[in-house]
Simulated assay, not measured.
Amino acid sequence: MEDCPRSPTVTTITSSSCSEDLVSSALQYDKDFIKTIPGILIFLEIVLGLLVWTLIAGTEYFRVSAFGWVMFVAVFYWVLTVFFLILYLTMAYTRIPQVPWATVGLFFNSSAFILYFISAVVNAVSVSHGFQGKHEYNRWAASSFLAFMVTLCYAGSVYFSFQSWRSQGQGA
């Protein structure tokens, strides 16, 4: 093998879309989002959803299998709603324009509304069925009420998601 002298020059190839992404890679903070009605709804979904699953988790919910479903829905949508809040606050969704965010938001909020409504009904029906004592009854009853409140918040989010989806020409 012979030693070939290496060139100190490095050649790079960049495309215009790649360099534009590099220039605008810093995330921004949208401090006004939380002041909008959709932002307030997301905040309420997070706070009330947290109360739903913590009230149930503080009891022996595993004795009534229906509460397992309620816990799954509450925790699953709580985590995803926190993710969407971070996505909206940091405006990270603007960095991925290939994703139809209006459609994703509409699907997410619609599925959250439907599954939260079902879990709120299951929660309400299971409160008297799973009666263990006054402490559990009060927590399960409170979680049932709050689950219906979260359902209403998601219904509002469905409305605003639908308006956003329709305004972007997705519904035409």
Rank of each mutant, 00 (worst) to 15 (best):
H129N: 15
W101G: 02
N123D: 15
L106K: 04
L106P: 06
S126R: 08
V104P: 00
H129L: 11
S126G: 13
H129V: 15
Q98F: 10
V125C: 11
L115K: 10
G105K: 03
W101I: 02
F108T: 11
P97Q: 07
N109I: 04
P100G: 03
V104S: 03
I114K: 00
A102M: 02
F117Y: 12
F117E: 11
S111C: 05
I114M: 03
N109H: 11
L106A: 04
G105D: 05
A102V: 00
V104K: 00
S111M: 07
V122L: 11
A120K: 10
L115W: 12
W101E: 00
A124F: 13
T103G: 02
A124C: 15
W101H: 05
F107G: 09
P100E: 01
L115E: 13
P100N: 08
Y116E: 13
P97V: 07
A124N: 14
F113L: 09
I114E: 02
I114T: 04
H129K: 14
S110M: 01
V127C: 05
I96H: 09
W101S: 07
S126Y: 05
F107L: 08
Y116W: 12
L106T: 07
I96V: 15
V125T: 14
S111Y: 01
S111Q: 05
Q98L: 10
A120M: 08
V121M: 10
V121T: 14
S111F: 07
F117I: 09
V125D: 11
V127H: 04
L115C: 14
V127M: 01
Y116V: 12
V104E: 00
Y116F: 11
W101M: 02
S110I: 03
F107T: 15
I96K: 10
S111E: 00
N109E: 01
Y116N: 15
Y116H: 15
S119V: 13
N109T: 14
Q98W: 07
S111D: 00
F108Y: 14
V121E: 02
Q98M: 07
I114P: 06
V99E: 05
W101T: 03
A102L: 03
V125H: 10
A124H: 14
V99M: 07
S128H: 13
Q98E: 14
F108H: 13
T103L: 04
N123G: 12
S126F: 02
F107Y: 09
S119Y: 11
V104H: 03
Y116M: 14
L115D: 10
A102I: 02
T103A: 03
F113A: 05
S111H: 06
S119P: 13
S111W: 01
F108G: 06
L106C: 03
H129E: 13
A112H: 04
A124T: 15
A102C: 04
V121Y: 10
N123C: 13
S128T: 15
L106Q: 01
A112G: 08
V104Q: 01
A112P: 08
